[in-house]
Every structure is written in structure tokens, then in C-alpha cells.
Amino acid sequence: MTKTPIESIEIELAVFIRRFIAATTNKKVGNLDRAAYLLLHQISSHGSAGVKALAEEFHLDMSTISRQTAALEQKGYVFRIPDPQDGRAYSLQITESGIAELALNKQLRLAYLTKHLQDWTSEDQIRFGELLHKFNSTP
């Protein structure tokens, strides 16, 4: 049966995501799931952020982000900074422990990708990155 390009992309993305998550959630090297990794990366890269801003960034509801950030706070990876204008609001800042855990998990992810892309030309690697960025940037 002939697949359309969209059908091919859909199944290849599903396989890629399954393999990547399985390889990068090895509990022997770090303990961040995909959501925790992305939240810590966002806060580390862009500075402290509130739950509302994170929910908007990830296109998730505030209750989901609240639950995920509460787990990060419980593990000591983030801490709350009270909003001086609104006593109920706060921003989240990454801790040294969070920075270290993020770095460890990033190292694992990079090792996985390096291994799987080692036979690709640098031009193919660049193009793959550009296409993934284009895909992820599409609203």
C-alpha cells in the first residue's frame, strides 16, 4: 500500500518519539520525564516564569502546568518567587539542583542523538534540525 507523504511523516514521527522517549528516560541517568525536561529548559533558557506564561507557551491548561511545576518544586528543581503586586501569583525560578538535573538529562539526549546521527553528513544534520524547527514553529 502506498503511503502519502503525510502518512509517512505521521508514522515516522510516532516511531521517533517512542524511541527517543524510551532512550532518554533511563532512570539510571537522571529522572526527568519529557514534561519536566521541557519546563526546566524553558525556565533555564528564558528566566523565571509564572504558571500562566508557561501554560501559554506549551499550549496547556494552567492546572496541568500547576501539577507539573508542583512536582518540580517538590523535587527541589524550582522554587517560587512571590509577585509583589499580587500576593496569590508567583514565578518559578530554577535551582542549582534543577540546573544540574537538566544538564544531566540534556547530556543523555545529546548522546542518543549523536549515536543515531553519527553516519549522517553535517549538511543532513543541519537540514533535519531546520525542518524540525520549521515543523515545531508552525502554530
Rank of each mutant, 00 (worst) to 15 (best):
A70N: 08
A70H: 02
A71E: 12
A71Y: 00
L72R: 04
L72G: 01
L72P: 08
E73M: 10
E73G: 05
E73D: 11
E73S: 08
Q74L: 11
Q74F: 11
K75P: 00
K75Q: 12
K75M: 12
K75V: 00
K75T: 00
G76E: 09
G76R: 14
G76M: 10
G76Q: 04
Y77R: 01
Y77Q: 06
Y77F: 09
Y77T: 04
Y77E: 05
V78D: 00
V78L: 01
V78I: 13
V78E: 07
V78Q: 03
F79W: 08
F79H: 12
F79C: 04
F79M: 08
R80M: 07
R80W: 02
R80K: 13
R80G: 06
R80L: 03
I81M: 03
P82W: 04
P82M: 10
D83P: 02
D83Q: 12
D83C: 07
D83W: 07
D83G: 08
D83K: 14
P84K: 15
P84N: 07
P84G: 08
Q85W: 11
D86F: 05
D86A: 10
D86K: 13
D86R: 05
G87M: 13
G87E: 15
G87H: 10
R88P: 01
A89T: 06
A89W: 03
Y90W: 05
Y90E: 11
S91H: 10
S91Y: 10
S91N: 06
S91D: 11
S91C: 01
L92A: 05
L92W: 07
Q93W: 12
Q93K: 15
Q93H: 13
I94Y: 09
I94W: 01
I94D: 00
T95E: 05
T95P: 01
T95D: 02
E96C: 07
E96R: 09
E96M: 11
S97C: 03
G98I: 01
G98C: 01
G98D: 00
G98Y: 02
I99A: 15
I99W: 07
I99E: 15
I99F: 10
A100L: 08
A100V: 14
A100P: 00
A100M: 04
E101P: 02
E101A: 04
L102W: 02
L102G: 01
L102Y: 03
L102N: 01
A103F: 09
A103M: 11
L104G: 02
L104Q: 05
L104R: 08
L104W: 00
L104H: 00
N105K: 11
N105A: 06
